[in-house]
């Protein structure tokens, strides 16, 4: 079963705090939704199969329709808001890289040994510390998404969107453009190489074309 959740783009095998928080939210919601589905469909099944039964309106509309969902949703919205607050980028001087999307590829600028280095299709970031991606676009709207690290953020021409992520361990993570952007949309992939910040900086030369999509899951 769990093997079915694998894959380089699986949100269910998180490799960073944001993705882990969202995966936790997902499993909680799945459990709750499963229980509610069973409850509602069981009631409907019983109601369909036999009867008539004497009943009044109040338990159905007031308790079932109003009070029950209000209570569940209040808890859920609060929980999700709390998780979301922990994820958003803050003005705290975190490690920052720039990403520019275009039809159809990604151009990244990240700190290198001798100042900023521009790479195509591969982004280098340190492990175990939050980093901000400053996103923009050269042409149409794209969306930056590394599912194992966290949620997505759009790259919009003329705007600078800041997206915060963090990787738990060094490795290679797959990313893709999630917003439909024309003919090359399906192939608009990229790779995030997470290095150990205590070790030497990796060679920041852009990888040859094609290898960006050849990697497997994170080690």
């Amino acid at each position: 079963m769990l093997a079915g959740c694998d894959g380089a783009f699986s949100t269910l095998t998180p490799a960073g705090p944001a993705a882990s928080g969202i995966a936790l939210l997902w499993w909680v919601m799945l459990g709750g939704a499963g229980l509610i589905t069973i409850l509602v469909l069981s009631l409907a099944w019983i109601a369909l199969r036999s009867g008539p039964r004497a009943t009044v309106e109040r338990p159905w509309t007031i308790w079932g329709g109003l009070a029950f969902p209000l209570a569940v949703l209040a808890m859920l919205v609060g929980f999700a808001l709390w998780i979301g607050e922990r994820m958003i980028a803050r003005d705290d001087g975190a490690f920052a890289v720039q990403a520019e999307a275009y039809q159809w590829g990604w151009s990244f600028v990240q700190p290198g040994p001798d100042g900023p280095v521009r790479t195509e299709g591969v982004l280098y970031v340190p492990a175990r510390q939050p980093f901000d991606i400053v996103l923009t676009s050269r042409d149409v709207i794209h969306s930056f998404w590394v599912p194992q690290l966290g949620g997505k953020m759009d790259a919009i021409p003329g705007r600078r969107n800041v997206h915060r992520l963090q990787a738990d361990a060094p490795g290679r993570y797959e990313g893709l453009c999630a917003e439909f952007c024309g003919l090359g949309h399906a192939a608009m992939r990229f790779e995030v190489v997470v290095y150990d910040p205590s070790g030497p900086l990796p060679d920041l030369a852009p990888l040859p074309q094609g290898s960006a999509s050849a990697g497997g899951t994170a080690p």
């Binding site: 209040a74 919205v77 979301g84 607050e85 980028a89 003005d91």
Partner: peptide, 14 residues
């Protein structure tokens, strides 16, 4: 009450 409670709970412009 419900849709606007984030004024006391969420980051303003972050």
């Amino acid at each position: 009450a419900v849709t606007l409670f984030p004024v006391i709970a969420a980051s303003t412009c972050g």
